[in-house]
Design a binder for these strands. Structure first.
Length: 346
DNA sequence: CCCGTTGGGTTAGGGGTTGC
DNA sequence: GCAACCCCTAACCCAACGGG
C-alpha cells in the first residue's frame, strides 16, 4: 500500500480543543466492526471511504503528536478533485463528530458530567453515513457480539466481490467497503446467506436498503442539524428495528435522551446501580423498568445515553484491564459484560 | 482390565422484534 | 402475553481410546 500514490487531506482541529483521536474513535462497538480498523500501536485508523461518485478508496487517518490537525491519507491518487476531498472530509467529520454543533454538545455534556470530561469522553464514534449506522444497528440484535462482528465483515466481503472497481485507485483493502444503500439493495437474500449466516436479517437489510434507495425512508431527515428541530422518530419505520434499535440509531444521529435498553443494560443496571430486575422474559421490557432506568440518568438531560455509555465503556475497560484503544482486533469479541466469566476458562 | 482423557453429538439457553 | 424468527456457544453426556 505504501507504494501506491496517496494524497493528504487535512482537517484542522483548532476549534475542537477537547478532541483526541483515540478517545473519539474507541468508545463504541462500531469502531470494532468492519471495515473499520484501529491500530493501537500507532493510534491510527484505516478504512475505505467514498469519493463524490461513490467509488471506495482506502484511507488512513492519524493525528500527528502535538499537532492540532488530522491527516487523512487517501490512497490511489496523488491529487483529488475538490469535490472528492470535501466528500472524504465530511465522512471523517461525521465519524468523529467534528462540527460546531457536536463541539457545543460535548461542552454542554461535560458541564453536567465532569468525570466524563476528565476522561475525555463525549464524542461517540459513528459511521461515515447514517445508513451504515442503521444497518449495523440491525446487526446488533438478537445475537452474540461476535456474530455482529462476523456479519459486518461478511457484508464488506460481499461488497468487495461484487463491486470492486476496475479503476486502479479503487478499493485495495483485503475486504471491501461497507455496502451503501444502492449496493446492498442489489443483493438477493440468497447472496447474503451464501456468505454469512444472516438468517432473517438478510431480508431486513435488503428491505431497508431498497426503501432508502426508492426514497421511502429518507434518512437525512433524522440527522441532527444546526437548526435543532427534533425529527419525528415515530415516523422512522424500519422493519426489524424496535425500541432498542431505534434508540441506538438516535444516539448515532446525535440525540442522546433515551437509553437503548438490551440485556447488557439490565446487567449493568444490576451491577452498577443495584437495580434488581427479575430475569426478564423474552421480548419487551416493561415500562416501569424503562422509566426507572431513564430516571437514573435524568440529571444528565439531554445527554442521558452519553452518561450511560460512559459507564458502560468504563466497566468494559475495568474488566479488560486496559483502554478500548489498546485492544487488538483478535480481542474484540471479548468485549461484553460477561468477560469476567469467560476469562476464567483460560 | 480399569480409569482418565478426548472427541463427537446432543441439548439448553441467550439474544430483540414481530405479529397473533 | 407469548410463540416464532435464526444462529451461536456452553454445557452436558457418552462412547472410544490410550496408558498404567
Amino acid at each position: 500500500m505504501e507504494t501506491l500514490p496517496s494524497y493528504n487531506c487535512i482537517i484542522h482541529l483548532e476549534k475542537f480543543p477537547t478532541f483526541t483521536i483515540e478517545k473519539a474513535m474507541c468508545n463504541h462497538g462500531f469502531f470494532m466492526m468492519a471495515p473499520n480498523c484501529w491500530e493501537p500501536s500507532t493510534k491510527s485508523f484505516s478504512r475505505p471511504l467514498r469519493l463524490a461518485d461513490s467509488t471506495s478508496v482506502m484511507t488512513f487517518i492519524s493525528q500527528p503528536p502535538g499537532k492540532d490537525h488530522l491527516v487523512i491519507k487517501v490512497y490511489g491518487a496523488s491529487i483529488l478533485w475538490l469535490k472528492d476531498e470535501l466528500a472524504i472530509q465530511s465522512q471523517v467529520k461525521r465519524m468523529l463528530r467534528l462540527s460546531d454543533m457536536d463541539e457545543q454538545d460535548v461542552r454542554d455534556f461535560h458541564k453536567l458530567h465532569p468525570e466524563a470530561e476528565a476522561k475525555g469522553f463525549g464524542r461517540l464514534f459513528r459511521s461515515p453515513t447514517l445508513f451504515e449506522d442503521v444497518a449495523k444497528s440491525l446487526l446488533l440484535r438478537f445475537c452474540p457480539w461476535k456474530t455482529s462482528l462476523d456479519l459486518a465483515k461478511a457484508l464488506c466481503f460481499l461488497q468487495y466481490k461484487k463491486f470492486k472497481s476496475k479503476r486502479k485507485r479503487a478499493n485495495i483493502s483485503s475486504y471491501g467497503d461497507f455496502p451503501n444503500a444502492e449496493e446492498l439493495a442489489s443483493f438477493s437474500e440468497k447472496e447474503l446467506k451464501g456468505k454469512g449466516n444472516f438468517g432473517y436479517r438478510a431480508r431486513e437489510l435488503i428491505m431497508l436498503a431498497k426503501q432508502v434507495v426508492d426514497g421511502e425512508i429518507y434518512l437525512s431527515k433524522f440527522e441532527k442539524d444546526h437548526i435543532g428541530t427534533e425529527p419525528n422518530w415515530s415516523k422512522l419505520k424500519i422493519n426489524g428495528a424496535g425500541p432498542f434499535t431505534i434508540k441506538t440509531i438516535m444516539m448515532c444521529a446525535g440525540y442522546y435522551s433515551y437509553i437503548p435498553i438490551d440485556s447488557e443494560t439490565m446487567r449493568h443496571m444490576d451491577e452498577f446501580h443495584g437495580l434488581k430486575v427479575h430475569k426478564r422474559k423474552r421480548g419487551s421490557i416493561n415500562l416501569q423498568i424503562r422509566d426507572k432506568i431513564q430516571q437514573i440518568y435524568k440529571r444528565y438531560d439531554p445527554f442521558q445515553s452519553l452518561a450511560y455509555w460512559f459507564e458502560l465503556v468504563n466497566s468494559y475497560e475495568t474488566e479488560l484491564g486496559k483502554e478500548l484503544s489498546e485492544l487488538l482486533p483478535s480481542e474484540y469479541h471479548h468485549v461484553t459484560g460477561n468477560y469476567e466469566k469467560e476469562k476464567k476458562k483460560f
